[in-house]
Design a protein around this nucleic acid. Structure first.
Lengths: 109, 109
DNA sequence: CGGTATCCAAACTGATACTG
DNA sequence: CAGTATCAGTTTGGATACCG
């Protein structure tokens, strides 16, 4: 858990502290579509190792962005979803998406 | 220069390819205030080494985000500014800033 | 299935020294 | 001033093996 005191003064840096890792943004992008299991998430993100995905999800859970629900079944099932805070990042993701689309369009033009 | 062909299909990932490095976002944040010399930029960003700042600026120049102007003086003067494409990232930066402010406010509350 | 633990190679970073 | 070059130290990441 990143405490308030440890957050940088600049709000831009605050956000970067929480999601600058590129995987985190992709995790949020994919969880915006709804709850996903660990393996589903791994597949939808693309090329990410189990270790790195786990580490990212644990941090995001600690930071209050992601909710982790463990079902006591055999075989085990673990589902990940966005918290309200995590979902509020949709605005940021959309800004990234819009800009990426325009950048590509300009490059082709 | 990242060619169009090399850009990921997902526009979110395209944007990340260009600016996911946290320094790049801070560089853009600071250049949004106007043209800056190398040393000014280094100071305004905070704790960044000369090597890393140079490397980031070179890449951003190649990607068409930043303009580099060298003045043939002694001592030399090099000024960096945003291109139109670079400046268009202001929307993204603002989204990051707004979200960071809200996140901190909620943490305190 | 969804992890954790371990090892190792590769990437990044920081400090330092030097230059046009 | 604004770099480039080099090298050691730290981090990061992938591969593998094993567990509840």
């Amino acid at each position: 858990m990143i405490t308030v005191d440890a957050l940088p003064a600049c709000p831009v840096e605050t956000t970067l502290t929480l999601i600058s890792d590129k995987w985190k943004i992709l995790i949020i992008r994919d969880l915006l579509d709804g709850t996903k299991r660990f393996s589903e998430l791994r597949r939808s993100i693309g090329h990410i190792s189990q270790k790195v995905l786990t580490a990212n999800l644990r941090q995001m859970e600690a930071d209050g962005l992601v909710h982790r629900e463990v079902y006591a079944e055999v075989p085990p099932r673990v589902e990940y979803s966005l918290t309200d805070t995590g979902r509020s990042l949709e605005i940021v993701i959309n800004a990234l998406r819009d800009w990426g689309e325009r950048y590509k369009a300009n490059r082709v033009a």
